Amino acid sequence: MSTFRLPRQREALSGFADDFAAWCEAADVPPAVATRFQIAFDELLTNAIAHGAASPEPLLVQLRADAGRLEAEIVDAGPPFDPLAQAAPDTTLALDEREPGGLGLLLVRELIDEVHWHHDGTRNHLRLAHPLSDAPATTG
Results as ranks from 00 to 15, higher is better:
Ser2Asp: 12
Thr3Asp: 02
Arg5Ser: 15
Pro7Tyr: 00
Arg8Gly: 11
Gln9Phe: 00
Ala12Met: 00
Ala12Phe: 00
Ser14Phe: 06
Ser14Ala: 14
Gly15Trp: 00
Gly15Asn: 10
Phe16Leu: 09
Asp18Asn: 11
Ala21Pro: 01
Trp23Cys: 10
Cys24Pro: 04
Asp28Ile: 01
Pro31Ile: 05
Pro31Cys: 07
Pro31Ala: 15
Val33Tyr: 00
Ala34Pro: 05
Thr35Phe: 02
Gln38Asp: 15
Ile39Trp: 00
Ala40Asn: 07
Glu43Asn: 13
Glu43Trp: 01
Asn47Gln: 08
His51Glu: 02
His51Asp: 01
His51Lys: 04
Gly52Met: 03
Ala53Asp: 04
Ala54Phe: 00
Pro56Asp: 14
Glu57Gln: 11
Gln62Asn: 13
Arg64Gln: 10
Ala65Glu: 01
Ala67Met: 01
Leu70Gly: 13
Glu73Ile: 04
Glu73Pro: 00
Ile74Glu: 03
Ile74Met: 11
Ile74Asp: 06
Gly78Pro: 07
Pro79Ala: 15
Phe81Glu: 08
Pro83Ser: 07
Leu84Tyr: 02
Gln86Phe: 02
Ala87Glu: 11
Ala87Lys: 15
Asp90Glu: 11
Thr92Tyr: 00
Ala94Pro: 07
Leu95Val: 10
Asp96Val: 13
Asp96Trp: 00
Glu97His: 10
Arg98Phe: 00
Arg98Gln: 13
Glu99Lys: 14
Pro100Gln: 10
Gly101His: 08
Gly102Thr: 06
Gly102His: 02
Gly102Lys: 06
Leu103Tyr: 03
Leu103Val: 10
Leu103His: 06
Leu105Asp: 01
Leu106Cys: 04
Leu106Pro: 03
Leu107His: 07
Val108Ser: 06
Leu111Ile: 03
Ile112Arg: 09
Asp113Pro: 06
Asp113Phe: 01
Asp113Gln: 09
Glu114Lys: 12
His116Gln: 14
Trp117Met: 02
Trp117Lys: 05
Trp117Pro: 05
Trp117Ile: 02
His119Tyr: 03
Asp120Leu: 08
Gly121Phe: 01
Arg123Cys: 13
Asn124Met: 10
Asn124Cys: 14
His125Ala: 08
His125Ser: 11
Leu126Asn: 13
Ala129His: 04
Leu132Ser: 13
Leu132Lys: 12
Ser133Leu: 07
Ala135Asn: 06
Pro136His: 09
Pro136Phe: 03
Thr138Asn: 08
Thr138Glu: 10
